[in-house]
Design a protein around this nucleic acid. Sequence first.
DNA 1: ATGACTCCCAGTGGGAGA
Length: 257
Amino acid sequence: MRIATWNVNSLTVRLPQVLDWLAAHQPDALCLQETKLTDDKFPHTELAAAGYQSQWFGQKTYNGVALITRAPVDAVAKNIPGYADEQSRVIAGTLNGVRLIGAYFPNGQAPDSDKFQYKMAWLEGLQAWINEELKSHARLVLVGDYNIAPEDQDVFDPVAWAGQILCTPEERAHFQRLLSLGLHDAFRLFEQPAKSWSWWDYRNLAFRKNQGLRIDHILVSDALKSAVTACSIDKLPRKNERPSDHAPVWVTLDTPG
DNA sequence: ATGACTCCCAGTGGGAGA
């Protein structure tokens, strides 16, 4: 089973690229973030014509997530149960016995901002929920735009970014807490090229200079760790005309079904 | 350089993203 995640920064703009990517890679599931669409505008018809069914959860202008799968999913959940939130950031479903959770983590803006406090509270809520989900779903995958660079090796200039948003000790501690629930960073289960990033700023010719961060992740539970056969970042879509600032990340699981 | 780009909703500017 192949699962992918991609922050598309507007599905309206990026739908042709998503359809191209689905055709080229044939994933079993693709989780999208920052669709920036109200639910009435979600392009489920176009995706169905490409052989994929969709679950979606959006809002106007900001955020918005979707689960695009070849086979139907069960037990769809939207946002974090028990954590009241105006923002559409999480969608989950069960696919072939695997609990798949796609999330657009808050950005946080700046460590001294109200948005950072929201990010911390949201991360607390997520951590508590994932802990509960693991009790009933040993086979669980948590993917998405985490807006956290877990380690210095995930940052092109760790000195300049030290203590900045996406790299604060508080955010990194939350990432480690997720791992401590029994999750594993699929990307780091394999040898990877140095300077592997999933996001490059639109400004400053950042992609051309390969100045990026690795902030999009795929975490797999203990029960799935040995099933992971590959995990990679696909930089190619970042070279498209009008690209998203994020690249897709995908994982392959050797699972029955 | 508190920049640079892109998206959105707006409405010829401003917020947000990361």
